[in-house]
Design a protein around this nucleic acid. Sequence first.
RNA 1: GGACCCGUGGUGUAGCUGGCCCAACACGCGGCCCUGUCAAGGCCGAGACCGCGGGUUCGAAUCCCGUCGGGUCCGCCA
Length: 593
Amino acid sequence: MYKTHTCGELRAAHIGQTVTLAGWAHTRRDHGGLIFLDLRDRDGLTQVVANPASAPAAHAAASQARNEYVLQVTGLVRARPAGSENPKLATGAVELEAQAIEILGPAKVLPFQVNDEMPVDESVRLKYRYLDLRRERLQRNLRLRHNVVKFMRDYMSAHGFLEVETPILFKTTPEGARDYLVPSRVHPGAFYALPQSPQQLKQLLMVAGVERYFQIARCFRDEDLRGDRQPEFTQLDLEMSFVHRDDVLAIVEGLYAEMIPAVAPHKRLAFAPWPKLPYREAVARYGSDKPDLRFGLELYDLSQIMAGSEFKVFQQALGAGGVVKCLVAPGCAGYSRKDVDDLTTFAKEQGAKGLATLALTAGGVEGTAKKFIRPAEVEQIRALTGAKEGDLVLFVADAAAVAHKTLGALRLLFRDRLNLADPNLLAFAWIVDFPMFAWNVEEKKWDAEHHPFTMPKQEHLALMDSDPGAVLADAYDMVGNGYELASGSIRIHRRDIQFKIFERLGLDEAEIQKKFGHMLEAFEYGAPPHGGMAPGVDRLVMLLADEPNIREVIPFPKNQAALDLMAQAPSPAEPKQLAELSIRVVEPQPAAK
RNA sequence: GGACCCGUGGUGUAGCUGGCCCAACACGCGGCCCUGUCAAGGCCGAGACCGCGGGUUCGAAUCCCGUCGGGUCCGCCA
């Protein structure tokens, strides 16, 4: 070993010992005579003193050293002179009087400072990710992530789950996200797919009698990136046999209830037990299937009150089978024309045709809807929503889905603008009773809302043919602070039901056999009832670390264009590689102007 | 595929309603001085022609167009 102790370890008790430390020169203070070096390793900082009188060679090396040089220092641990202790350092009572300093690795001038937390352009951080990772912020996030994953492993093991690895090279799935494909050299023209999740494999592990499985599983989806989405991400994938929905939820709820205090003690859980919100209720009240429940600001349905409205915009929406809904922005009655215009622009970006407003002021009502809403209606709105003087009521009249999406987005906008959500609160909840199917307008067919292996609610099985849109599934999401943090379901374990679902999704028998024959066949050999879920690791760590995006908790993330700016991946393949894979690249045609 | 925002020395910013900017400040970097600092200090110095290309103008970092790079969001994400 190059070191006898870590840089975070030395205390008064070590005084008098000769030790060797190794690490990075965090900062250097050259007094002309004495040179102070703060030596950093993963565990902390230790002050090294080089004295030209007592150790000229060590002092000479310290003179050469610059920030981020890798050094090995041997010396005597001694108490700092009285009054010069540093209470900000864990090792601040002592210092290392250098007897020998060896430069193990010199460093060029850095593209950005490692020893401070100044913000740096993210593309520079990503290019030099190995330097960024040295900094406090990402070190802390790496450690937190380790603690989270370690806790998950321990908890799952303690609850009888077996960690099982599943293949990364597997089979493409016809539905869902775009697959990453891996060409087969041995079978020209054939491709593996990287798993979007180990869904089928974990179900087959249930058929295999594993009963309780988990895996810290990497998942791959070739879709566009967002602040909370990377093309590869990590889930705590789990599956259980002989369980009902609430058995699965209890395991996961228990995990978080125990883990949060252990790994992120500054966070408080808003609910115990967690509420279970039906999907429809979540969407109706919060305009989202992943509501942020740290604050109220609910949506209200004014369709009844406005049924006889003379406001044409409302009439049209209601006449077309839509809704009139509203949100009350507290204390925003003083918004200027421009403020309201900006909100309207925002609403239109979300898909709404427009936004009507009503400001409740001391002098009466103001706003774009003023002329069209009768005093009696205003009173009814106040009674329903609790809106009071000084508030701004925002109306969206549209198809229900559009109204919910728009008001849901406005709700989050006001959350941020008015600081309505406590950052140290974790409002975890379950969203349950998702629809089984969603109508695909473009392709004029039913898609699986969750995935095709989800068990419809027993009492809805009969509706599969007559009214697919009404079929609810035994599917559930875990949400927290506006993020979807986990998703799962009770699965189909009967061949007949599974086959029927595939048919309902528009697959013919030949396709079903080709794509899912292995699943159907497995269910014919004694498949236990089973279900599971998959909590996302990245988003959770992001929340616990108070980070604004997922890249901060992934050591080597890709940027928005799915590029690795450090390694410059992806990159073109060599002709020889392509030839081996029987692949020819067709350059994309430049788009015609 | 679309909308919006950003792009000034190594880093972070200022300047950006055009001329006082051959660009300022802080950190970093180099040299000298300094034996108790820990955001060490003092003095001196180097470093950007303002992402790139074109245009408007007597004159552009500052206005316009295009392009490249980065970000946020919509679509997409069973």
